[in-house]
Design a protein around this nucleic acid. Structure first.
Lengths: 240, 240
DNA sequence: CGTCTCCTTGAAAGCGTTCAATTACAGTGG
DNA sequence: CCACTGTAATTGAACGCTTTCAAGGAGACG
């Protein structure tokens, strides 16, 4: 299940420097090749990152050798704010462009104080999303919910990109790649989605997908309209 | 599975006021009776909380009617920092004593700036713990990991308190209460733990429990010693 | 054209859920 | 003090979903 990618060395290229729009946060623009590692679990944390383009995964290897993907990160997501030591590894799912920010020697985020909160809140949001995914019991529930979340976070219109492998999805949802593949194929067969190659999806029936996420035979009164009018956050949270 | 507790009205009593040791954070001490609700999902967030005594659970009701417990919170844990609107409900598992802090009208935590980060980091830590639990695939894995985490966070020496019901545990781990009950009984039969009543546990074989968390037949090389020397945080994180 | 990686699919086995029944225990009222 | 009641926990048996084992297919690359 781990399929150890033998990630080779850290492949990061430094490109440019810049500031955010308020001229307060200083960063470097760095790139990492698909499959390469941005940082490793247990490394001392000198930087934290923001995704500019591409997809990043954070992961841990458990005691039994299994791999757990704790999050997929898309443009505008932040990662590496764990603390003075990284709790997870971060790897490039695709070729990625990142902004890299320094962490001060006191192990606090080196920023104007009123930005720290926003940064951490974004990270908290991201963690909460992962927790919510696991409220779903069956494989079909979790995978449907994952596809919906991924679609919402995907920048592509008319077509959702699934940049990660089936194995990545499986390790994210605590399933096997077989079950993931089977279930996605099943969704395609039943007309909920269409697949243009394994990594390219179009959602044909969003309501149906919500129903698949909610349960095996979600009663008519429990359709997925408990949706969260999520307030200040950038993207809505899927409850279904 | 939800076993709707009909939680009645919010039962909170205001007691005293105080400051933290640095004389900077102002709070009220409030209590809530076992089973009562501290706040509801989608309520406007006027306060955030810190547990002083007892246990709190945060939960959401999914579109299909199932209940998801996103966290159990013990003394020193914080909750209710979601944002301007609570994303989850919070309920008292036992009679609890809480510190209640105001959230400013700008929806930011109303505190000296350099404390905000610590508060959010604590919340992030708590969310991360929940994510980690789901890295475990089988029911036995997850339950063993849950028992270990709970034991570490339990204040009791020589005996671990399980203040929540089997149903609560099930809704936290996305299992049924039957599987939870069966598996815990099985752990007791095989000598890993001892039960003095359903809510009182003693761990007899911590290594064995770690092995049960790691996998069905964790090889000799993969014993649970990948443990995290978690750095600045209050409590160690269980990876097994 | 061979090799590699990833994805897909089939069949059988195992585990967790579901359905169902029993037990334990605390609170209440006779 | 004891029966009654309601909630929580435990346990059994059958079903069904997910995993496991196994094989085959699709696409990229040299």
């Amino acid at each position: 299940m781990v399929d150890s990618d033998d990630l080779g060395a850290v492949v990061i290229s430094l490109h440019t420097q810049g500031h955010d729009q308020n001229q307060r946060l200083q960063f470097n623009v760095v790139t990492a090749d698909k499959g390469s590692s941005v940082y490793h679990e247990a490394d001392e944390a000198h930087y934290w990152y923001e995704v500019v383009r591409g997809t990043v995964r954070t992961c841990r290897i458990l005691a039994d050798g299994h791999r757990q993907l704790t999050a997929f990160l898309y443009p505008e997501d932040v990662f590496g704010v764990d603390g003075p030591v990284y709790r997870e590894s971060a790897e490039a799912v695709t070729d990625v462009v990142l902004r890299r920010y320094s962490i001060g020697s006191n192990h606090m985020l080196s920023h104007p104080l009123d930005d720290r909160e926003a940064i951490l809140q974004r990270a908290l949001e991201s963690a909460r999303r992962s927790v919510f995914l696991f409220g779903h019991r069956t494989a079909a529930n979790r995978i449907a919910a994952f596809l919906i979340v991924t679609a919402e976070r995907s920048s592509m219109q008319s077509g959702v990109d699934l940049p990660m492998t089936r194995c990545d999805i499986a390790d994210h949802l605590s399933l096997t790649l077989h079950t993931v593949s089977r279930t996605i194929s099943e969704f395609a067969r039943s007309g909920l989605i269409a697949l243009d190659g394994p990594q390219k999806m179009r959602i044909l029936d969003l309501d149906g997908l919500h129903r698949a996420a909610a349960g095996p035979d979600s009663g008519p009164g429990t359709s997925a309209y408990l949706l969260d009018e999520s307030s200040n956050s950038t993207d809505p949270c899927v409850l279904a």
